[in-house]
């Protein structure tokens, strides 16, 4: 019956047109993202590594998208306060939050912090601060081997300071102790700065911190080793752990996360923008000079990345939990 077929064809055509037209705004949505300023929540106070790198991104974000990245500091409980609140924000892509690995893996594993690692929807990781063992410039330890030898001969006598308990520094200290079969005494401090200060005042023998701290302290300290694959341009005279036979590459990886439920295409667009900032040579120069290592962990790579990291930390986490 011709009438029916024509009617059917018409209905089909208009339905497809309607359907296609609904797709357009979605596609347009992602392509237009961001249409206004984006709030970037940083779980730490101004001046810390997360905050400083976020502010570096700000400038380039404005150039790329024409919109502002507004930084909001929400410190508390080593970052846990903000991460526990992440999924309470609107999932429209206009509120993003800084994240750090190993923190978001370590914290929920060690105690009840108000969120689980799976609750954090990571979009992109854009740099890491490699672990570094630092001693006072006037210290007796000229190379890492000196430190290791002393520690082997005097178990527990080497004091190694770091920021907090059950944190990235603590984890790194455990990992390196394990790999060198030595026993060091970890001294927790309330942040990197007090630890470095104690080092400068010769209160402790060494510090497990980041390359950025080594760069900041300059001539007053000597960095014994860095946890990167190749030597870091900001610290060219410092050997890597691998060169010295210790297979440790890692540090604190910082990235950006969004509330659960943010549309996938917005996440991809955000990841694209962040990757473009990372590719900018000016941005890279800023980061490298201060001791950061720029890396790209793209949206697709994140699940593998997180899985890898969780496996790497598993042994040390067990050790730390046993000590609790």
């Amino acid at each position: 019956m011709n009438l029916n077929r024509r009617l059917f064809a018409k209905i089909l055509a208009s339905a497809s047109l309607l359907f296609a037209s609904t797709l357009v705004p979605f596609a347009a949505q992602a392509a237009d993202y961001p249409e206004r300023d984006v709030t970037y929540v940083i779980p730490y106070n101004p001046g810390g590594e997360s905050d400083v790198t976020a502010r570096m991104q700000q400038k380039f974000f404005k150039e790329l998208t024409g919109h502002n990245l507004i930084i909001l500091n929400k410190p508390g409980a080593g970052g846990a306060t903000a991460w526990a609140q992440l999924n309470g924000f609107k999932a429209d892509g206009y509120t993003i939050m800084g994240t750090i690995v190993p923190h978001i893996i370590l914290q929920p594993a060690m105690k009840e912090v108000g969120y689980q690692t799976e609750d954090i929807t990571n979009v992109f990781f854009f740099h890491y601060t490699p672990d570094a063992i630092i001693v006072n410039a006037e210290s007796e330890f000229k190379t890492l081997q000196d430190l290791v030898d002393f520690a082997s001969a005097n178990p527990g006598a080497v004091t190694m300071g770091g920021s907090g308990t059950n944190t990235a520094n603590h984890l790194a200290a455990e990992i390196v102790s394990g790999l060198t079969s030595t026993v060091t005494t970890y001294i927790p401090f309330k942040g990197s700065a007090p630890a470095i200060t104690a080092l400068l005042g010769n209160q402790i023998k060494s510090v497990m911190s980041y390359t950025t701290q080594g760069v900041k302290a300059g001539d007053q300290v000597r960095s014994l080793a860095v946890a990167t694959e190749k030597r870091h341009p900001a610290l060219p005279d410092v050997p890597t752990f691998r060169e010295l036979g210790i297979n440790h590459v890692g540090g604190a990886y910082r990235g950006v996360a969004v509330p659960k439920g943010t549309p996938e295409d917005i996440q991809l667009e955000l990841a694209k923008i962040l990757a473009e900032i990372n590719a900018n040579p000016e941005f890279q120069k800023l980061m490298l000079e201060a001791g950061y290592s720029v890396i790209d962990v793209s949206h697709e790579q994140i699940p593998t990345f997180m899985g890898q990291k969780a496996k790497t930390y598993a042994g040390a986490i067990k050790q730390l939990k046993a000590k609790q």
Binding site: T81, A84, M110, K111, E112, G114, N166, P188, Q324
Partner: peptide, 21 residues
Amino acid sequence: IGSAVIGGDVRYTFGTPQLLG
């Protein structure tokens, strides 16, 4: 009250994340 810098214990928080700090 809160998570200790030394030892990392979570003390007297009654299990609420708000008191972690």
